[in-house]
Design a protein around this nucleic acid. Structure first.
Lengths: 230, 230
DNA sequence: GTATTCTAAATTGTATACAATTCTGTATGC
DNA sequence: GCATACAGAATTGTATACAATTTAGAATAC
């Protein structure tokens, strides 16, 4: 009847958020004592949480030197985008075979529901959250829990860069994100028609297009991380 | 100049092996004190290692109840096989584009080198290790570290079942594993010819065929895990 | 016999202490 | 100036102690 979440879980969630947002700068060494004070827990649960994040690829670990933030390089981000292609395309193929009609209908309703917010120049972070939610629901229609789990992990590690890319896209095109929604619609229509080849092609193109802008986004990320913003 | 590996690393490797081999039975609760005595370390580093394994999907964790072995169900194993298809097919597509000629040649040499051991009825565990090594090298030709990392994780979680499947296959076909080597050859030839479609088709069929036998292998796994062997 | 409550034992959760190691800055030699 | 050696400070690694919680079993009621 009391708290369901353990302290380690709380610390873990906080650290995951921090790591996703690069609150730790790339390759930065993490001071355990300092961090444990900040999070209001001793080093024991803190280190347990840090170890989880190492296994998930958010941090690295060196014996007797402690924990470090993952580095941020174009190669790393390009790899993550490619891994997304692998996971999402296969999930989509499976979804074409397995998703129930009512599940597809429900996803279509969701797409329509978020359309106004997506169109209007709402908060980029919200917009990205909606995008991730759509992609995740799509992946979940495969019925494969591992693929969903992997996608969630990839999303969390790539989010910081995707957010930069999204903002840039908006600036360049004046509050409108062109082609994005129609890309989602194209994927959805292929799924509705149970056409795996068309669905996969649409998904692949959709992700690939953003991947091509990733290197540039990484450059911007560095300038944001190391230069005072305003 | 002294030990490079930390105690946590040592404990982690041991636990990972145990978890892969289902030295912990599915859903079994793990007693920390007992295990720490067994591994010759205190509960602090033990729990750090256990947390890594939770993040990797080998174990689960319930607040105030501790760590448990992952459960073993046909659905779980089928999901892992599907995830392998996702990772390996995409890696292979990328390899067709990116692998250097000399890398492909080297892989071909490796394939020829292991052929005699693979053909003869050598130790099934060794045979599986060779199979995994081939698939991993293939994936690494993609140049994508994330895909390699994901495949390694999947391999470790699925190995126990694959070993059972492989033994069964040998028993049924009298020391010969038919079609296996030629499947690898077919994949390799398509890669050599830089034909992603053919390569992916061969890979997909190769994995899918074993996936179809997975449910049966899970049944056998249970009988092995809960009945004295000899 | 079954269900319920209670108590003691077992187990997990986490803070802390201290050993081992690395890091930092200063002094020394060339 | 530059490299090296060294000492002290800082940091990580891990055992241990004890609190919090769950579990197991006995006693009781129906």
């Amino acid at each position: 009847m009391s708290k369901q979440l353990s302290n380690v879980d709380r610390v873990y969630e906080a650290l995951r958020q921090m790591a996703a947002d690069f609150a730790f700068k790339p390759d930065q060494r993490i001071n355990e004592s300092e961090l444990s004070k900040l999070l209001g827990a001793s080093r024991t649960p803190l280190r347990e949480a840090l170890n989880r994040l190492v296994a998930e690829g958010f941090l690295t670990f060196q014996n007797n030197r402690g924990f470090f933030c993952r580095s941020l390089t174009p190669k790393y981000i390009l790899d993550l985008y490619e891994a997304r292609v692998a996971i999402e395309c296969e999930a989509l193929r499976l979804a074409c075979r397995r998703a129930k009609d009512h599940e597809i209908t429900a996803l279509g309703d969701y797409l329509e529901q978020i359309e106004p917010d997506y169109e209007s120049g709402s908060d980029p972070a919200e917009q990205l959250a909606m995008d991730e939610a759509f992609h995740l629901r799509l992946a979940q229609l495969s019925g494969n829990d591992e693929l969903g789990r992997m996608l969630r992990n990839l999303n969390d590690r790539i989010r910081y860069i995707r957010l930069i890319d999204l903002k840039r896209l908006r600036d360049k095109t004046g509050k409108r994100v062109p082609g994005e929604l129609s890309a989602h619609s194209r994927i959805f229509l292929a799924l509705s028609g149970r056409d795996p080849a068309a669905a996969e092609a649409a998904m692949r193109g959709h992700i690939e297009k953003r991947r091509e802008a990733a290197t540039e986004a990484v450059q911007i990320a560095f300038s944001q991380l190391y230069v005072p913003q305003d």
